[in-house]
């Protein structure tokens, strides 16, 4: 319950902080922190316009997408409190609920019959496909390390002890941040600010959405960011008492948002053709995490 609340609060700030960081880094005054939320509220007040060629799928997809992310947030624990849903193997549920939402997003994009949207959908599907093994190997390694299979138990019993587990945590953080960027279609992989349909990935998929649906999709994006942020936070806090862990949650989320903003200000986007290899590199790195876990468990010496 606690995690849901915290994530909702963080989601309200997250995108604003990114935008603000970017504007400060580029020397502009920039919009206020709440501007993204205001945008969404404005969109929610509007109705939606649907193309005549689309079917029912296009209409339900944004809702399902939103619902899937909310479902995924429900399994995320925080400190000692479990997520609202928590059972053994819930990280698999987490991954596939998100995949379901993404799937609807993709077929909705195909449904419009626009060639640009089809292209964007295929790119997004490709990138998620490459990011998925990385996530599973990472979570699998952590499960192996702790001997538990649900988010709450894994994070709760993740002790940071020897050098090698520092290394594993560092690598895991790196992999999780990169997965966050990929899943949210952010900078090194995809540029949300691009204006050319040919170079878009995520943005091009939602070209046809308008009004309420668009607001829903944007909200989902903010939630997703905060959700992955919460995962990373969980990696660090373990079982600190609440009075420390709640401020830490916000500080870490803030740092992540600033880092994302800085990355977006100072890095150029990867060449589209090279994206696949960078994403696959995550899988390689998470294999190394797996290998490190085997070392820690001395299954291997």
């Amino acid at each position: 319950m606690l995690s849901l609340l915290l994530i909702l609060i963080a989601a309200a700030f997250f995108s604003g902080i990114i935008v603000r960081t970017k504007s400060i880094a580029s020397g502009r005054k920039g919009p206020g922190v709440f501007q993204p939320i205001k945008d969404v509220i404005r969109l929610f007040k509007k109705g939606a316009v649907y193309s005549e060629t689309t079917s029912i799928i296009f209409r339900i997809a944004p809702t399902i997408y939103f619902a899937s992310v909310v479902m995924a947030i429900l399994v995320i624990p925080f400190d000692e409190s479990k997520g609202i849903i928590s059972f053994k193997g819930d990280f698999i549920f987490f991954a596939y609920v998100l995949a379901l939402g993404k799937f609807f997003n993709i077929i909705a994009a195909m449904d419009t019959g626009s060639s640009f949207e089809g292209m964007g959908a295929s790119r997004e599907a490709l990138f998620s496909m490459f990011a998925e093994p990385a996530f599973f190997i990472l979570m699998g390694s952590l499960a192996l390390l702790t001997g538990h299979t649900s988010f709450q138990e894994i994070f709760y019993s993740l002790h940071v002890g020897s050098y090698i587990s520092y290394a594993i945590t560092t690598l895991a953080t790196f992999v999780l941040i990169m997965i966050t960027m990929i899943e949210n279609s952010r900078m090194p992989i995809d540029d949300p600010k691009t204006h050319l349909e040919l170079t878009m990935v995520h943005e091009v998929m939602i070209l046809d959405n308008s009004g309420f649906d668009l607001g829903l999709i944007l909200t989902t994006g903010y939630l997703k960011f905060a959700m992955y942020g919460a995962l990373i936070v969980n990696l660090f806090i373990g079982m600190v008492p609440y009075q420390y862990s709640i401020p830490m949650f916000f500080i870490i989320q803030f740092i992540i948002a600033v880092v994302v903003g800085l990355i977006e200000s100072f890095m150029a986007r990867f060449r589209m053709g090279h994206n696949a290899q960078y994403i696959f590199a995550l899988t390689s790195v998470s294999l190394l995490i797996f290998f490190g876990v085997l070392l820690v468990l001395e299954k291997f010496v």
Partner: peptide, 10 residues
Amino acid sequence: VNVLLITFLM
């Protein structure tokens, strides 16, 4: 040493 070697693999 293990950390260093894993970095080497990376």
